[in-house]
């Protein structure tokens, strides 16, 4: 084995690969919970580690050790596979997004399309998870998730395309590089696209006001109702990775991604930017009530899709390029 192969394996497994991303996922879950709690005048996680920073990890470990119940009527294969996919898909996408330097671990022309594809696959996984548990609440939750996807998939794709058009490349790393070399962040050029992306990310991550597929008071835990033990642990990990993915994508596409500023390594600027994005997500999820599914879908089509199209047209007209 050459040193190079070893380094690549190390990169995939440790930094900036799986281990680092897991750590980041747990860290951002903690940031999210803590910020949300502070907004609501609560403490949030407090006792596990300093200021409860290890709480998400503790939750994860605890769930791993819990009993794993599979409903009798459930489709066992799909029911078991869904959580795995749910955790693996955002992780795969994160290899494409630049984290530690301007270049991501895996990059190829058109990897942006791949990310869009995986995010669509995730919703499919959610639907399958809800469908395979055969619980009424899960079913409704899964259907809602699928329905919700119809709402946000188009605008989020358009919002992703915006920077790509500006950079002239379908590779995320290239978009990042373009921003850094041209010394302008896309967010200043395409604020509408940024806003659309943020809103759709909330919907993608099922955060209030778009936590419709798992609305606690309406359908218990939605598509996740029947999951427990290791499966639930994987679902939670997937959710956290999704948060990292969404913030990383937003950072890469609109905030110029990992950037070497003076002596600060790019990974630090990346973390600062993503942490800021997570904070913004937490703030936004705190100040709204949940929409109803019909209101959400119609609102998306009525307002966000035209806005996203408008942004694309503006870019084509040369504004925001």
């Amino acid at each position: 084995m050459t040193t190079e192969t070893f380094l690549i394996i190390l990169q995939i497994l440790v930094f900036p690969g799986a281990f680092f991303l897991f750590a980041l996922a747990f860290l951002y879950e903690w940031v999210d919970r803590k910020v949300l709690a502070r907004i609501q005048s609560r403490y949030g996680p407090l006792y596990t580690g300093p200021s409860g920073i290890l709480q998400p990890l503790a939750d994860f470990l605890k769930l791993l050790s819990k009993e794993d119940i599979v409903p009798m009527a459930a489709d066992k294969i799909l029911f078991t596979l869904a959580p795995v996919f749910y955790a693996v898909l955002p992780l795969t996408s994160l290899f494409i997004v630049p984290v530690a330097s301007q270049k991501s671990l895996v990059m190829f022309e058109g990897d942006l399309i791949f990310v869009m594809f995986t995010s669509a696959l995730m919703i499919l996984t959610v639907f399958i998870a809800g469908y395979s548990s055969t619980s009424r609440f899960s079913l409704i939750g899964g259907v809602r998730a699928a329905l919700q996807m119809i709402g946000f998939e188009i605008p989020i794709s358009l919002a992703m395309i915006g920077p790509a058009i500006a950079a002239g490349s379908l590779s995320i790393s290239n978009i990042v590089q373009w921003q850094q070399t041209s010394l302008q962040w896309t967010v200043w050029l395409q604020p509408i696209g940024f806003a659309v992306f943020v809103v759709c990310s909330l919907a993608e991550m099922e955060f209030v006001p778009f936590d419709i597929p798992e609305a606690e008071t309406e359908i218990v835990a939605g598509w996740r109702t029947e999951f427990s033990g290791r499966k639930l642990a994987l679902l939670r990990l997937g959710r956290d990775l999704e948060l990292v993915l969404a913030s990383a994508l937003l950072t890469s596409l609109y905030l110029a991604g990992p950037q070497q500023v003076w002596l600060i390594p790019p990974v630090v600027t990346f973390m600062i930017k993503t942490a800021f994005v997570v904070l913004m997500f937490s703030l936004l999820r705190a100040i709204f009530a949940r929409f109803r599914i019909d209101q959400m879908v119609s609102g998306m089509w009525k307002y966000l899709v035209p806005l996203a199209i408008l942004q694309v047209i503006l870019i084509q007209l040369g504004i925001g390029r």
Partner: peptide, 16 residues
């Protein structure tokens, strides 16, 4: 009521 429509922040504030 705020909690039922997913507005947990308002719920926390009112209860506080």
């Amino acid at each position: 009521a705020a909690h039922e429509i997913g507005f947990d922040t308002l719920f926390m504030y009112v209860w506080r």
